[in-house]
């Protein structure tokens, strides 16, 4: 009886707050990576790891519509801070920020065509051609 009530409450809450969906980190289905830890995700997106755990060169993608939400969920920083972070590294030349993509579709296209690419999108928009490795709850 209690479980039924809890399920009802969750269903109600999910109906009430549709905008608060999670961010899903996705990779190519053939990348050989089943899932990533949060730390792995930080290292990949903040430039520390150049390769995925599977060995493919990592190609992180910044998806413009979700960028702010993503970084807030991943490292709890706003975009200005993220930009400042990368700005420091401009002159060293060794590291570069993730490739910027404008839309989810563009991201989906790159991910599906590149085994090392890593992107993100709203978890509700995940399609079967993308493999979710980590859900970042907001």
């Amino acid at each position: 009886m209690i479980r039924v009530r809890c399920c009802l409450l969750v269903a109600l809450l999910s109906l009430v707050m549709p905008a608060m969906a999670d961010i899903a980190i996705v990779v190519n289905t053939g990348s050989g990576v089943s899932h990533l830890t949060r730390s792995d995700a930080v290292n990949i997106f903040m430039g520390r790891y150049r390769k995925l755990p599977s060995g493919n060169p990592a190609l992180p993608l910044d998806v413009a519509p979700f960028k702010a939400r993503f970084y807030r969920a991943l490292v709890n920083k706003n975009l200005a801070e993220i930009n400042s972070y990368w700005a420091r590294l401009v002159f060293s030349g060794e590291n570069s920020p993730p490739q910027q993509v404008a839309t989810v579709d563009e991201m989906r296209q790159i991910v599906t065509s590149n085994p090392g690419a890593v992107g993100y999108l709203d978890s509700r928009e995940v399609s079967p051609d993308l493999h979710v490795v980590l859900i970042l709850s907001e």
């Binding site: 520390r48 420091r88 002159f91 060293s92 060794e94």
Partner: peptide, 17 residues
């Protein structure tokens, strides 16, 4: 902060700087 980044990225150039 710079040291954090340099170390985080193992960025020798930045560390030397």
């Amino acid at each position: 902060r710079t040291a954090q980044i340099a170390c985080f990225l193992d960025d020798e150039q930045l560390a030397r700087e």
